[in-house]
Each structure stands twice: as C-alpha cells, then as structure tokens.
Amino acid sequence: MRSSGVLKILAFLITCVLIIICYQILLTTSIFNHIDSKIPQPDPVPLGKGVGNVKVFLENEPQALGTATAQKNEPIHEINVVITFTNAKDNTNLQQKFQTTVLSMFKWTTLPVNIYIIGDRDSQVLADAILKQAVSKYNKQYKLVKLDTDDLAKKLHEVIKEMQQHFSYKPGAYYSHSLFFLSIAIHRVMPETLHRVIMMDADLKFNNDVKELFELFDNFSDTNVMGIARENQPVYRHVLSVYRSANPGTRVGDPPPNGITGFNSGVLLLNLDKMRKSELYNSLINPQVVKDLTKKYSFQGHLGDQDFFTLLSLEHENLFYVLPCTWNRQLCVWWRDKGYESVFDLYFKCEGHINIYHGNGNTDIPKLDWEK
C-alpha cells in the first residue's frame, strides 16, 4: 500500500513537470512570433512588369543604383548607361572599339556612371578588365552592373521571336540575336528602379560630357518615349523603295529635315517609365501589328531594333524625340556609291560640334584634337 502511494505521488509530480515544460515552450514560441512580427522586413526589389526581371550582379555594391530621377529639370546625380558588348572574346577589333568608347566617355564625364553590360559571360569579363584600365587613366567614378544575359535573352525571345523575321537578314545573321532587340522591350525586363537610361553601341567616341546627352531627356514631349537620331544614309529610302514608287510625294524615306528618314539606334535615350506607361507603344510590340505594318510598307529590314523603331515612326512619329545628329554622328558611307550619289549628302550632312562619333559599318573614327 505504501509503495502504491509513492508511485501515485511520483506520477503526479512527473505530470506537473511535463505541464510546466509544455507551457514554457508555448510561451517562448508566442514571444518569438511576436518579436518577429515587430521586426521591419525589407521590401522586395521591384522586378518590372511583363515577361519578368533580369538577375543583376553588382560590382562594389552601389548604394543608389538606378535611382536617376525621371522628373524633368531635377539635378542629375548619376548616369545609367547600357552597352551592348557581346561575342567579344575572339574579336580584338570589337575589344578596341569598346575601349575607345569607355575611355572617351570617362575622359569627359563629370558624373558617376552606372554601366550595364549586355553580353555573354566572356565578354563581361573582358569588359570588366577594360573598364578598370580606363577608369585608372581618368580617375572617374563608375559602377559595373553585370546582367545574367542568358536569362535576359530567353525573356526577350518570348517577346520578339515572331517579329525578328522582319528585322533580320536571315537566321543566324549578326542582328538576328535577341540581344540586339533589347531596346524594344527593355522596360519589361529591367528593374522598375531604373527610370531613364542611355543605351549605346560599343563603337563610339565621345567628344563631350555624357551628362549633356542625358539632359536631353528634358526636351521630350509628353508622348515621346525615347530619343533616337536619324539614319545618316539613305538606308530606308532603299528599304522602302517599293512603297515610295507606289506613293509618289510621300515623306517616307525622304531626307531631313522634313522626311520620315528612318533611325539609327547606335545612341538611344530610353525613358523606361514612359515606355512602361505608354499604351500606344506597348500595343505596337505585337506580332500581328508588325506583320500588318511590314506588309503595308513592303518593309523587310536587316538592322535589328532600329528597323522596328523606323517602322513605327512611319505612322507614330510622336513616340520619338529626334536626337540631334551631333550626338550620333554616323561615319559609314557604304550607300554613297550604291545608286544614291545625287541624294547621299542630304542624309549624311551634319552641322555643328560633334559630341559623339559613331564608327558604324566598321568605319574608322578620326583622331580628335584632345587625343593628339
């Protein structure tokens, strides 16, 4: 009897201990849940709309990357620049052109530059080395942003795959790669923290401060979503020759200042906010719309994104702010002796101080006074 009573007491004490332990566990869990609910959690990084966002890898963890304001006439603290530099590993000529582009930009810039490199991984490694060498010469501030371009190319392909056939010479041609169409849908794949960017080719030479180019965003009208210079050769006079023959007196393909000349995309001012918001512009990134326009104008391009912008301009000039030719002075004269001698200079003429030379068509850029 006595041992039975002891066992009952022990059972009671064990039960009490277990109850106390369970209570403490529940109390602790409640406290930590309460604490967690009070700790501010970081907001997710905006990832853009449409087909999604590109993975971004930052060098030196820039603090205010991509915050360049989209408001007119506000102070500019940094410049966002996107450069296409791809398939460069075995192309020393392209490497030298890229070096000239960034060296001359660093020579003149008075503001920090965030540089987004569009290219394969090998090209990005080369770009990193060239940039470090260039900045050491001029001691300017920059931040390199490496993009996951495999991911980017896949996302772009979904947007433009059915339109590419109208703007590429043939599958596998130089301008057939989806990266050469990035500017068309850049607002759908880049972070919404990016508001305005300068996108440019890797065969340029700056002769002025890139800040002055960026300031041209303030000249945009309410309907302009991008700034782009006219093509300096009668390229689209030729491409649109069938339409021109059937429509005498048309402005389509005519030279500046009154013609719808067509564009060159070597230097672009892209207002990503306005591109995102423009119902008109986004409605035109549509395979059926493009098909209808190419049929109407008997248009078969071969120069990638600039063909698309030229095609849109035939009916929607108001989407584009025309950059002065001095900010994209194209030097190629291939079309001069291809049956257009009598009108060539009407397209090629560009008066005023040249701010950016563009060695398109693998054309040599002259040595400038500051290089001698």
Rank of each mutant, 00 (worst) to 15 (best):
L284T: 04
S241A: 14
Q233N: 08
D203E: 14
Y175V: 14
Y297M: 01
S298W: 11
S178M: 03
Q300Y: 15
L147V: 14
F180L: 11
P171E: 11
T250G: 06
T15I: 14
K372Y: 04
N328Y: 15
S298D: 13
I365D: 02
L346H: 15
K55A: 11
L179T: 09
L10A: 08
F85V: 09
E215I: 00
F57Y: 06
P171A: 04
T109M: 08
W335G: 03
H302I: 10
V51M: 08
Y236F: 11
N360K: 12
S265L: 08
V189C: 08
G172S: 07
N91H: 06
W370R: 02
Y116A: 03
L27P: 00
D364I: 08
I25G: 01
H166K: 06
A173D: 09
P62A: 07
Q306Y: 09
T101S: 13
Y116P: 00
A229P: 02
L270D: 01
F12W: 13
T193E: 01
P248H: 15
N219W: 05
A127H: 00
D254W: 00
H302P: 01
L27K: 05
I21A: 12
P44Q: 12
G50K: 12
V289I: 14
T109I: 04
D364G: 01
P256N: 03
M163F: 07
D345S: 14
F217Q: 03
D222G: 12
E215W: 00
Q41G: 00
K143N: 15
Q133H: 09
G50T: 09
E279F: 05
D222M: 14
S4G: 00
R121Q: 14
D305Q: 10
L284M: 14
F167Q: 03
E315C: 03
A134G: 07
L269A: 12
V145N: 10
V289M: 08
V135F: 02
H157T: 12
Q165K: 14
C325A: 13
G262T: 02
V125M: 09
F98M: 14
K143G: 11
L65G: 02
L216I: 11
I9K: 13
H177D: 11
W108I: 01
L94V: 06
F181A: 04
K205V: 10
D151K: 05
K107F: 15
D307N: 06
I130R: 01
Q95I: 00
W334H: 08
F220K: 01
D201T: 04
H316T: 06
N91R: 08
V333A: 08
S278D: 11
H34I: 02
G253E: 00
F181I: 02
L194T: 00
D307R: 09
N207R: 06
K143R: 12
L314Q: 09
I285M: 10
G249A: 10
K296W: 11
G359E: 07
M200G: 01
V51H: 12
L58C: 10
V82H: 05
K277R: 02
L131S: 09
Q165M: 13
E371L: 09
I79K: 05
N286R: 00
A88M: 11
G352M: 12
D151Q: 15
A202H: 05
A173M: 01
N87S: 15
Y174G: 04
Y23P: 00
R237C: 05
L47P: 00
P46N: 04
C325L: 10
M226R: 03
V125I: 12
Y175G: 13
Q96T: 12
Y138R: 10
R244H: 15
P255A: 05
A127E: 01
I228E: 11
N53L: 05
V242H: 10
